[in-house]
Design a protein around this nucleic acid. Structure first.
Length: 427
RNA sequence: GGAGAGAUGGCUGAGUGGUCGAAAGCGCUCCCCUGCUAAGGGAGUAUACGUUAAUAGCGUAUCGAGGGUUCGAAUCCCUCUCUCUCCGCCA
């Protein structure tokens, strides 16, 4: 959520910033609503003050044994007027809040201009794509060739956009996950966590998926609905919900491996082949909760942590600064890591690292006590994939493929596979 | 799933209809005293919103959440959520 004070004081600056995303903020309409809210609030509060004063007077009169009948008569219709004012105020506040919750985050000033991913700016590149002396296959051909990747069985169970992994491939994905968690916890200072995969709506409002993007989520049919997490960012960032952390708890670095569930509504026809875009995938997520002055540096650090994974897996990648039109709803700045996929002969997103500033913190009242002022202030939240395990599996398969159909395993993963250096049909 | 108990400020914990935003203790901050790895005295110490030049004043709201009764609710009633205890079930 954007600071409502800023919406009132500098509506044009807000509108200009959001326009870079292609988002139209109707500052005039907001102002009309807010003026209405203000008037109703003043009215309501003055009626409340009147009620409080008269109640006090009646109490005193009663204590002294005086006749309170005239006092009661004087406030006869106060309750009715007050509850009417309160009702109107509540509805005005709900209208405003609906607008506020629907506004995307303000972009950092140096986010590149552009409407879509074609305007993203490459920041750096690591590694050199391998030259193949045979026709490189994609992960579908490799996996099915090994007999370890099975979309038909998955379709029979769950329909499209699901996969079944078997034997060595299933194990390879588990190795990737464990490797990532080990690096982040032992070398990058993260606390490993295990978190709920089903969350309630308020948690998703906190991180920004709700109320606007409900169609991207899976929801249970229980009386109070649960949502399946689309990313561990949701439970991890909500660790700070409604809390005032002390400064010495910061920075908080959290990591978790979780499955992620996305309905992929609106992506019909995109990436329909293979495991690139599934309803369910595994991911190791990184979340930072930091003091505001630290968040710019934290994004660089977090991105570096994700890069470490790709470097140690010897996977060529590039870092891309997302342009204004491609940055997600809650982020003020985002770097994507794109890994080289020989099967597609292009770089594909494998991690997205974002600084959300105080946008999510304001939604979930996540604060810390600033030691300089002694006052609670909003935290800054950051999140990034470190990295998406399903796509990392694809990258390892495609980059490590051999002409005979087997897969060479990156050396750092071998300890997790009982020392095995390759994936073969035997599994 | 059944029965019972509970939810108060950073923490512990009083408060069962009126001057309670809320006793007391702890913690924390500042000051004084002390001249010493300690103790003592004093003051202060929630958040949000509105008004405002103002983190000054003033007003309003908040005692798990939402409704209700009442001139007036932390206190009474209803619903819900969560926690704890016992029983049942279960990985």
């Amino acid at each position: 959520m954007i600071d409502p004070k800023l919406l009132r004081q500098s509506p044009d600056a807000v509108a200009a910033n959001l326009a870079r995303r292609g988002f139209t903020f109707d500052a005039a309409a907001y102002d009309v609503l807010d003026e209405r809210r203000k008037a109703l609030q003043v009215e309501t509060e003055s009626l409340q003050a009147e009620r409080n004063a008269s109640a006090k007077k009646i109490g005193q009169a009663k204590a002294q044994g005086a006749d309170i009948a005239p006092l009661l008569a004087a406030v006869q219709d106060l309750g009715e007027r007050l509850s009417e004012a309160e009702r109107a105020l509540k509805s005005a506040q709900a209208d405003l809040s609906a607008i506020e919750l629907g506004l995307p985050n303000l972009l950092a000033d140096d986010v590149p201009d552009g409407a879509d991913e074609t305007a993203n700016v490459e920041v750096r590149r690591w590694g050199t794509p391998r030259e193949f002396d045979f026709a490189a296959r994609d992960h579908v051909a490799i996996g099915e060739g090994l007999g370890l990747l099975d979309f038909d069985t998955a379709a029979g169970i769950s329909g499209s956009r699901f996969a079944v992994l078997k034997g060595g491939l299933a194990r390879l994905q588990r190795a990737l996950i464990q490797f990532m968690l080990d690096v982040h916890t032992s070398e990058h200072g993260y606390t490993e966590t295990y978190v709920p995969y089903l969350v309630q709506a308020h948690a998703l409002v906190g991180t920004g998926q709700l109320p606007k993007f409900e169609e991207d989520l899976f929801r249970t049919a229980t009386e109070t609905p649960f949502y399946l997490i689309p990313t561990a960012e949701v439970p991890l960032t909500n660790f700070a919900r409604d809390r005032i952390l002390s400064a010495d708890e910061l920075p908080l670095r959290l990591t978790a491996h979780t499955p992620c569930f996305r309905s992929e509504a609106g992506s019909y026809g995109q990436d329909t082949r293979g495991m690139i875009r599934q309803h369910q995938f595994e991911k190791v997520e990184l979340v930072h909760l930091v003091a505001p002055s630290e968040s710019d540096a934290a994004l660089e650090a977090l991105t570096g942590h994700a890069e470490q994974i790709l470097q140690r897996l010897e996977l060529p990648y590039r870092v891309v600064a997302l342009c204004a039109g491609d940055i997600g709803f809650g982020a003020r700045r985002t770097y994507d890591l794109e890994v080289w996929l020989p099967g597609q002969e292009r770089y594909r997103e494998i991690s997205s690292c974002s600084n959300c500033g105080d946008f999510q913190a304001r939604r979930m009242k996540a604060r810390y006590r600033n030691p300089e002022t002694g006052k609670p202030e909003l935290l800054h939240t950051l999140n990034g994939s470190g990295v998406a395990a399903g796509r990392a599996l694809i990258a390892v398969m495609e980059n490590g493929q051999r002409e005979d159909g087997s897969i060479e395993v990156p050396p750092v993963l071998r300890p997790y596979l009982g020392g095995a250096g390759e994936i073969t049909p035997e599994g």
